[in-house]
Computed example of a mutant assay.
Amino acid sequence: MKAKIFIVEDEPSIATLVKYNLEKENYKVFISNNGEEGLKEIKKIEPDLILLDWMLPDLSGIEICRSLKKDKKFKFIPIIMLTAKGQEEDKVLGLNTGADDYLVKPFSHSELVARINALLRRVKPQAIEDSVTFEDLKVDRLQKRVSRGSQQIILGPTEYRLINFFITNPRRVFSREQLLENVWLNSINVELRTVDVHIRRLRKAINLPGKKDLIRTVRSTGYSLDNT
Rank of each mutant, 00 (worst) to 15 (best):
M1L: 07
M1S: 01
K2H: 01
I5A: 01
E11T: 09
E11C: 07
P12G: 00
P12T: 02
I14L: 09
A15W: 01
T16R: 15
T16D: 15
V18N: 09
K24E: 14
E25R: 14
E25Y: 10
N26Q: 14
Y27N: 06
F30R: 04
F30L: 07
I31A: 00
S32H: 09
S32M: 00
N33S: 04
N34L: 02
E37R: 04
G38W: 04
L39H: 06
I42P: 00
K43I: 02
K44L: 06
I45G: 00
P47H: 05
L49K: 07
I50V: 05
L51E: 06
M55E: 11
M55Q: 12
I64W: 04
C65R: 00
D71Y: 03
K73S: 08
K73V: 00
K75W: 01
F76T: 13
P78L: 10
P78M: 11
I79S: 01
M81Q: 00
L82T: 07
E89R: 13
K91I: 13
V92H: 09
L95D: 12
T97L: 02
G98E: 09
D101Q: 10
P106M: 09
F107C: 11
S108Q: 14
H109L: 07
A114L: 09
R115S: 10
R115A: 04
A118Y: 04
A118K: 08
R121I: 06
R121Q: 11
R122S: 15
K124S: 15
P125T: 05
Q126F: 10
A127I: 14
A127D: 03
I128V: 15
D130H: 12
S131E: 13
T133V: 10
D136V: 07
D136M: 11
K138N: 12
V139G: 07
D140Y: 12
L142Y: 06
Q143T: 08
K144G: 00
R145T: 12
S147A: 14
S147K: 15
G149E: 10
S150N: 15
Q151N: 12
Q151D: 07
Q152Y: 13
Q152P: 03
G156W: 00
G156H: 02
P157K: 05
E159T: 00
R161W: 00
L162F: 04
L162M: 05
I163A: 04
N164I: 07
I167V: 01
S175D: 07
R176F: 08
R176K: 15
N182H: 08
W184Y: 13
I188D: 12
V190Q: 12
E191L: 15
T194F: 01
V195D: 02
V195W: 04
V195I: 13
D196F: 04
H198A: 03
R201P: 03
R201C: 03
L202V: 03
L202E: 04
R203D: 14
I206L: 02
I206N: 08
N207L: 06
L208E: 12
P209T: 08
G210W: 13
K212G: 11
T217V: 12
T217M: 09
T217Q: 09
R219C: 05
G222P: 07
Y223P: 03
S224L: 02
N227T: 04
